[in-house]
Design a protein around this nucleic acid. Structure first.
Ligand SMILES: [Zn+2]
Ligand SMILES: [Zn+2]
Ligand SMILES: [Zn+2]
Ligand SMILES: [Zn+2]
Lengths: 138, 138
DNA sequence: GCCGCAAGCGTAATAACATAACATATCGTT
DNA sequence: AACGATATGTTATGTTATTACGCTTGCGGC
């Protein structure tokens, strides 16, 4: 069975480095965070990271979190090439939870059909506190 | 009956200028777009705009579009102080449509309850083509 | 009135995020 | 080998957002 960390073998060196960094990270990383972690591997310029991220995001191996200007490795195969993905982002620990919901997707689709809107991309990000952090705070 | 353009009277000068600019604009504006439009009124620095935007967003008079790094005036009173708002953004003409959906809100709430996640803020942005633009393209 | 506080404002500097432009390099196909 | 498509490296620049500091204004308590 395919699971989270089946990394495709046809990535370029830079793509592999960037995806590796994201996968190893606890939470989301900005492009510049990634760059800093990869200086030792020879990366020097933001564009090297951004180009790799573009490809990874295209392929669904990574996601961009718009509300954070940051990126995460895809948490699982479940979403590759699929439609709507939602992210729950903990403001305390940075953990990102990724999930899909067919009802929401259908509901949005229906809103779009009604208004004649053609959906190309949807971003959905919930900010808050995860269960672990709430427990610790209690 | 209250409608879209009941502008509160207790805004400061800068807040009023910024909200006026947003309201007058067809589509979303970046903070720097706003600044450029307000140079004639004496605004000089980004911070003047960002500060005003913060207040306006807090009060629900404007919204930030995370996927665009831009801002819009609230399209109506319907959402002030309420929960989840979704935005449909046309990539062709820039028009932004603002709507609320109780089913989606409930669905997210239920996901959050299940996982013990405490929601503080949700952003939901649909990118695509509006009906008008699709018609023109046809 | 005067003090103290909170909110707002102005300005300069800087940080953080992202892309343009151009030159090379690598690889599979013909 | 020649070609096109894709990836790369590098420099410079553009865009978005915040930090730090000091001054002003309005307002309630004394
Ligand atoms: Zn994913
Ligand atoms: Zn947490
Ligand atoms: Zn609104
Ligand atoms: Zn349109």
């Amino acid at each position: 069975m395919a699971h989270s960390h089946d990394i495709p073998t046809d990535l370029t060196r830079n793509q592999e480095l960037v995806l590796g960094t994201l996968t190893a990270s606890m939470g989301p990383l900005s492009a510049y965070d990634i760059l800093d972690k990869l200086r030792g591997d020879g990366l020097r310029a933001p564009l090297q990271v951004y180009r790799a991220l573009d490809k990874l995001v295209d392929r669904g191996l990574a996601h961009r979190l718009e509300s954070l200007n940051a990126f995460v490795a895809c948490a699982d195969m479940h979403c590759h090439r699929k439609g709507l993905i939602a992210f729950a982002i903990c403001e305390s620990c940075g953990k990102v939870d990724e999930f899909a919901d067919e009802v929401i997707e259908e509901r949005l689709g229906s809103w779009a059909r009604t208004g004649g809107f053609k959906v190309e991309r949807t971003t959905m990000e919930i900010r808050g506190r995860c269960a672990d952090c709430l427990k610790k705070a209690a």
